[in-house]
Amino acid sequence: MKIRKGGPDDVPAMLGMFDSAVAWLTEQGRTGQWGSTPFSTDAARIESVTRRASEGDMRIAEIDGEPAGSIVVGPAMPYVTPAPEPELYVQMLVIDRRFSGRGVGSALLGWAREEAARLGVGLLRVDCYAGDDGRLVRYYESVGFSRTVEFVVGEWPGQVLEMRISPADS
């Protein structure tokens, strides 16, 4: 697996990753997270992905030259209270379902942990969908994050999780 810097040219691949995730979630009857409409057909989601690709620090994980996942880090999302200390925030993480079970998410989160350490930032945070059976929250816990604050945006239940970073993590 190779992790490279991404940018606006990667927006079509990212939209494809989101589309594959939405299709899989829909097949599972789990539409609470992202609904059932493909990201690539939703103007607001296209704009959001495009903006984050331009403004944030994006990385693309590739397997055999194929984009397998993407992560964008930056400041906390506007619906989350910023931390009282410097932090790096996972704004977006998506894995193409074709590469499920191959460690793509863990590798990208490992890159984020290393990036936080490199920047001298002691806190890495992420938020995620906390509805249905809580599987996504448990995933983040399995890779070292701890639950902090629960929140709701509209009817969407969310969970903020954090990971402490030490300089030795770099």
Rank of each mutant, 00 (worst) to 15 (best):
Q28V: 12
G29R: 02
R30Q: 15
R30I: 15
R30E: 15
G32N: 14
W34R: 09
S36K: 02
T37M: 12
T37L: 07
P38Q: 02
P38M: 02
F39C: 12
S40V: 12
A43D: 15
A43G: 13
A44H: 10
R45Q: 13
R45N: 12
S48R: 14
V49T: 00
T50M: 04
T50N: 03
R52N: 13
R52W: 10
A53Y: 15
A53V: 11
A53M: 15
S54E: 15
S54L: 13
G56F: 15
G56P: 11
D57T: 12
D57N: 14
D57P: 13
M58P: 13
M58T: 14
R59E: 04
E62G: 02
E62Y: 08
E62N: 11
I63Q: 07
E66W: 09
E66R: 12
E66H: 11
E66A: 06
P67E: 05
A68S: 08
A68V: 09
G69W: 09
S70D: 11
I71M: 07
V72Y: 12
V72F: 06
V73P: 10
G74N: 04
G74E: 03
P75Y: 07
P75A: 06
A76E: 04
M77K: 12
P78K: 04
Y79D: 04
Y79R: 06
Y79S: 04
T81R: 13
P82H: 06
P82L: 02
A83Y: 09
A83C: 10
P84Q: 01
E85G: 04
E85N: 05
P86T: 00
E87G: 02
E87A: 04
V90F: 02
L93M: 05
L93H: 09
L93K: 05
V94K: 04
V94P: 11
R97G: 07
R97F: 09
F99L: 01
F99P: 02
G101R: 03
R102A: 00
V104F: 01
L108E: 08
L108N: 05
L109F: 10
L109W: 12
G110Y: 06
G110L: 05
W111H: 05
A112Y: 11
R113S: 04
E114H: 04
E114S: 06
E115W: 07
E115S: 06
A117W: 03
A117F: 08
A117Q: 01
L119T: 13
L123Y: 08
L124G: 01
V126C: 02
D127R: 01
D127T: 07
D127S: 04
D127I: 09
C128E: 01
C128Y: 00
C128P: 02
Y129M: 02
